[in-house]
């Protein structure tokens, strides 16, 4: 039945660096034949690739519908999927931070409204600090929420910090450092162990032992 190892690839910012890393590990997507297929084989027919929206990847891999995937640790922590994460791929590095308008002091007590795309991660972060917050879940342009008065602060990804500065905000604290991970379904690790282990070893080697040609 499903004997080929299926790998979910994240559409968006990690797609190019993720496929480049797989290619350096000797796992290359076969050239597109112009059709509108949703599943692509690799050159050796050993793997199959399925491009998906990143936030959906942990759910597919946890359920076993797809055997492995590449996904940012920000999403992995948010979804809390029960999967293996054998290789930190070292790509897509950025930080998840708590940010607020410059000049705003966070209240030591009382409640704070925080806008974020990461409600669970945010809740865990503030629970760890024993601070009570109201979380506003947004799906995009989180940095504008304080300007418009929807929230006092945000928890969001930053790469350079430019967007924050342009919106008059500053980083208050790091919530987590983020990078892309290879994730693997728990059962596939056992039932498809030869190919899954090959994938893990190859990626681990190009990331940690042969990082020379990183683009």
């Amino acid at each position: 039945m499903k004997n080929c190892v299926r790998i979910a690839l994240p559409k968006g910012r990690l797609y190019d660096s993720g496929t480049a890393l797989l290619a350096r590990a000797g796992i290359e997507i076969a050239p597109a034949d112009g059709s509108r297929k949703l599943v692509f084989p690799d050159r050796d027919g050993r793997f199959e690739f399925i491009p998906l929206k990143p936030v959906d990847i942990p759910v597919y891999v946890e359920s076993g519908t797809i055997d492995a995937g590449i996904v940012g640790s920000d999403i992995l922590r948010e979804v809390e999927a029960d999967v293996y994460e054998p290789v930190d791929l070292g790509i897509g590095k950025c930080r998840l931070v708590l940010a607020a308008a410059s000049g705003l002091a966070l209240p030591a007590a009382g409640s704070l409204r925080v806008a974020t795309k990461y409600p669970r991660t945010t809740e865990r972060f503030f629970r760890g600090k024993q601070l009570h917050v109201h979380i506003v879940k947004l799906d995009g342009s989180v940095e504008i929420a304080p300007l418009l008065g929807l929230a006092d602060a945000i928890v969001d990804l930053v790469e350079t910090g430019r967007t924050l500065r342009e919106n008059g905000m500053r980083v208050i604290e790091d919530v987590a450092s983020v990078s892309a991970k290879l994730i693997v379904n728990r059962t596939a690790m056992k039932t498809k162990s030869v190919d899954v282990r090959h994938l893990i070893t190859q990626l681990d080697t190009v990331v940690y032992e042969n990082p020379g040609q990183q683009d």
């Binding site: 039945m1 059962t187 596939a188 039932t191 498809k192």
Partner: peptide, 11 residues
């Protein structure tokens, strides 16, 4: 013990 169906890749 973990019991598996290799054909279906299911625990």
């Amino acid at each position: 013990f973990t019991f598996l169906s290799p054909a279906h890749s299911v625990e």
